[in-house]
Nucleic acid binder design. Structure first.
Length: 279
DNA sequence: ATGCCATGCGTCGCATGA
C-alpha cells in the first residue's frame, strides 16, 4: 500500500495536478492539507474519475484537510479530543474550531491528515495556539497507542516545525522565528517520546519539502523540511520505501509543498513476486 | 523589518502563509 501526504495549498487551484500525480505515482491513499474549501466546493468529480474516494474536513477558505483513497476508508474522525480553537470567542467564550485534523483507517492502518498551526511569530497568540494544539494531539495520540498498541498508526502532514537545524536552508535566517524554536521542537519530540518516528528520514536523509514562492527560494534550493510521516512502531515495521517528490515543486502552478510518500508491506497484498515455498 | 508570490473572499484591498 502506497501512502502519501501533501500540503496542496488549495485543491481547487491544483486538482488536475494532484489527480494526475495520484494516478502516475500509483498512490493508494493521499492525506492532503490546506485544501482551502468546504465540502460543497470540493472537486469530487476529478478524483472519482481517477478512481479515488474523498473524505474531507473543510470549514471555509482557510486550512482544511482531506483524504483521497482508492481503498475503503473507515472510522472517520473529524478533529481530535480536546482540540483547541482559535479566533474571537463566541458569547459562551468558546473559540472557533479550525479544520486541521482528520483521521481514517485504511487496511487496518490508522492514518491522520494534520495541518499544524503556523504560529506566525513567537509573541503571537497563534504561537501559543500551535503549542497547545500539538500538546492535545500528543495527549490524544498517547491514549490511542495505549488502547491499540498493535495497530499501525501514522500522523501525516504539515507539522510547521523544522526538527533539525539542517531542515532549514539557513538557521541564522530563522533566528527569533517560529518553526525552529525550542518549544516547537520539544512539542515535536513529544511524539517521538510516544514511540513515533519519522519513517522517511532514514530512507531520505536530506532534502526539503517546502520552498517559499518568493525570492527564488526553489531555484536556489532554499527550503524547509516540515512535512512528515510519523509512524508508530507497528507502522515503522511495515515501511519498505520512502521518497520526497521534489519534482512536484516544478512546472506550472505548483504548491509550495511537495508530496512525501511511503510504501507499506501489508499481509493483505498480493505476494505474486515472492517465491513459492509450499506446494 | 519586509508579504518580493500565491490563495480566496468579496469587490481590488485584506487575511493568510512559514
Amino acid at each position: 500500500m502506497r501512502v502519501a501526504t501533501w500540503n496542496v495549498n488549495s485543491i481547487r487551484a491544483r486538482v488536475g495536478r494532484v489527480t494526475d500525480w495520484l494516478v502516475r505515482e500509483d498512490i493508494d491513499v493521499l492525506a492532503m492539507q490546506e485544501i482551502k474549501c468546504k465540502e460543497t466546493q470540493f472537486p469530487f468529480e476529478p478524483f472519482a474519475e481517477a478512481g479515488y474516494e474523498v473524505e474531507l474536513h473543510g470549514l471555509n477558505q482557510w486550512n482544511g484537510v482531506a483524504f483521497a483513497s482508492r481503498l475503503p476508508m473507515e472510522d472517520l474522525t473529524v478533529g481530535f479530543e480536546g482540540v483547541p480553537g482559535f479566533g474571537k470567542p463566541d458569547e459562551n467564550g468558546a473559540l472557533p474550531a479550525e479544520a486541521r485534523a482528520l483521521g481514517v483507517t485504511v487496511n487496518g492502518v490508522r492514518l491522520w491528515s494534520l495541518y499544524v498551526p503556523n504560529g506566525r511569530d513567537l509573541e503571537n497568540a497563534h504561537y501559543t495556539y500551535k503549542l497547545e494544539w500539538l500538546k492535545q494531539l500528543a495527549v490524544d495520540t498517547r491514549k490511542w497507542i495505549a488502547e491499540y498498541p498493535e495497530q499501525p498508526l501514522a500522523l501525516m502532514g504539515d507539522f510547521n516545525i523544522a526538527p533539525l537545524d539542517t531542515d532549514v536552508w539557513d538557521l541564522a535566517a530563522f533566528e527569533g522565528s517560529t518553526h525552529i524554536s525550542p518549544l516547537e521542537r520539544a512539542a515535536f519530540a513529544e511524539f517521538e517520546a510516544l514511540g513515533l518516528a519519522d519513517v522517511v528520514r532514514p530512507l531520505v536523509p536530506t532534502g526539503y519539502t517546502y520552498w517559499d514562492y518568493k525570492q527564488l527560494r526553489f531555484p536556489r534550493n532554499e527550503g524547509m523540511r516540515i512535512d512528515f510521516i510519523m509512524g508508530s512502531p507497528a507502522f515503522q515495521q511495515l515501511v519498505s520505501d520512502a521518497r520526497i517528490d521534489r519534482n512536484e515543486r516544478k512546472g506550472d502552478a505548483p504548491s509550495d509543498h511537495v508530496p512525501v510518500v511511503v510504501d507499506l508491506e501489508l499481509d493483505t497484498e498480493d505476494d505474486d513476486d515472492r517465491p513459492m515455498i509450499f506446494g
